[in-house]
Design a protein around this nucleic acid. Structure first.
Lengths: 302, 302
DNA sequence: ACGGCCCATAAGGAGGACTTATGCCTGAAC
DNA sequence: GTTCAGGCATAAGTCCTCCTTATGGGCCGT
């Protein structure tokens, strides 16, 4: 489509030449403008000549000691300067603005049971960074959602993204001390069979029963209600409605203050883990780097 | 100076990429924007990717059926569009504005004796073109004066400029009929010796005397006052103060209405001529082309 | 008169931008 | 459900723009 190209080209002059023109018009010197732009005087001369040919009129008068704007140049200079100021502003706004808000996509459970208690220290460390949490269990697609960084669980093998393991998604039974007391305490795995099991359809129960040497058939008999998220299941457990099977690392606070107890050291592990995930191409973006370094240090430090 | 370059580059993003971004943001389509810019979709994709890496954040979310601006993109788009509108306006203003005023540098004599009587028809033919006359006898330098086109006399061999011969700078004696009557009419060259000669030091007189077979020594005796310009000399002749030697083509009106008479057909010619002159590079600028075509037709037509 | 400053020009080279070709994904239509 | 079409991404290759180095010319100041 050569005619289209021609039309376009005639609509707008070469941008590089205009950028040079703007600098030259400000300095009224080819040499100084070239210096500001980080190129040689010859390059500036070349670009101005190009632009003058395109405009169809000289833009500068070459006087012995300095140059001055022609009438045409004077008409052009102010608007061009303003346009570049706008452009610079827009660019800076996009850059810094992008640095000012960090969009984190996270799993519901992780948000309520880990981030909620730790995020404060990140905010303190980076007061200029606003964090926007996007809570969902979908697998985020960085190309089609406005997300900077995500926390996911799974095998950790996703293409095109950088991953850091936070901790294993292990699992172990938990219940409220009050519920345990109703049967005189939970001392060995078999004791669990005398209590209601929240979401017995969860494969984690099956794995753990096998590991604990309990009969798996017990699970099938039970009435099940899938909770969907560990946080919900844990809440039910805290309320004393039954035994939950969850990731211990996410409930340190509940274990510490006695709302939940972990009766056995035995934990199941299906190889899944919690991961920090972000696009490879953006690994050096400051806010992403900041969040990464913070969360890894936080995890390692506890 | 690599660090200088770096500084500059980080100040402003690649302009070509921004131009593409502006179009894409308007169309919300890589393909359509590429079409408008006269390039392929792949090129647009490439430029956007470049810009996104530079900004440090995605600018568009790639949704299946269309793309949408990210937060960063939204911040950037309006100002960028405005900047390009400004740029386009400035460019158009310089272009069309430059087309609106034609600066003609001309010799005093040519201005008062030829242009004054013909310029009207040019104005009528090009009502949107304002003509600014710059009258001087200096040899204009297009590089350091704001001049579009010039009329000069001389040999016609100037470098870097396009030249068109208007008419020969021939010369012949002229005087007022009243003065001629004081000696009973001027019938042969020798009659001139009985009349005062304006500016006898002019080399034209010497050439013409030789061509007419008159003794050159006569000229040396005479008291001379250089007039500087044919127009002044002719005015003195019209006032009856003496005989002038001027270019006949420039005094057609005076000859026609009898203010001056040309007693002899004999004209001198030193090879000089009147020329239309302008920079080669600007030969196709509309206003320059218009003036050239008009003046050549006007000269040819009389 | 001579050196310095500044711009113009020519030749040459490095890198960027664009094109072509192809693949992938998704949504719509049959 | 399957195929088709629309739209973007990616890879490889080519061309050309833009910049650099080098040099010359004009004018000013000392």
């Amino acid at each position: 489509m050569p005619e289209l190209k021609l039309r376009q080209v005639s609509q707008l002059p070469p941008l590089q030449a205009i950028r040079v023109f703007e600098a030259v018009a400000r300095h009224l010197s080819f040499t100084k403008a070239a210096g500001e732009l980080g190129m040689t005087q010859a390059a500036a001369s070349y670009q101005i000549k190009l632009l003058e040919e395109r405009v169809g009129a000289p833009l500068f008068l070459r006087r012995p000691r300095q140059i001055v704007l022609t009438e045409a140049g004077q008409r052009m200079a102010p608007a061009v300067s303003e346009a570049f100021a706008l452009l610079g502003g827009a660019y800076a706004a996009a850059r810094s603005g992008a640095d000012g808000v960090l969009c984190v996509s996270t799993l519901l459970t992780f948000a309520s049971n880990w981030l909620a208690q730790h995020l404060g220290s990140f905010q303190v460390a980076h007061p200029s960074l606003a964090v926007r949490l996007d809570t969902s269990n979908r697998l985020v697609d960085f190309a089609r959602e406005d997300i900077d960084i995500a926390i996911r669980s799974g095998g950790g093998n996703w293409p095109g993204v950088e991953v850091h393991k936070l901790f294993n998604a292990d699992f172990t039974p938990m219940l409220s001390p009050k519920l345990a007391a109703t049967i005189g305490g939970v001392n060995e795995p078999a004791d669990l069979l005398r209590l209601p099991i929240l979401d017995p359809g969860d494969v984690w129960w099956r794995d753990w029963f096998i590991a604990a040497g309990l009969p798996v058939e017990e699970l099938a008999k039970r009435p099940g209600s899938s909770m969907g998220a560990q946080a919900y299941e844990a809440n039910a457990a805290i309320a004393g409605q039954g035994v939950a099977i969850v990731t211990a690392a996410l409930f340190k606070a509940e274990l510490a203050d006695g709302r939940l107890i972990q009766p056995f050291d035995l934990v199941g592990d299906d190889g899944h883990a919690y991961w920090l995930v972000y696009p490879q191409a953006r690994r050096n973006v400051p806010k992403i780097r900041a969040f990464r370094e913070w969360i890894l240090a936080e995890i390692a430090g506890q």
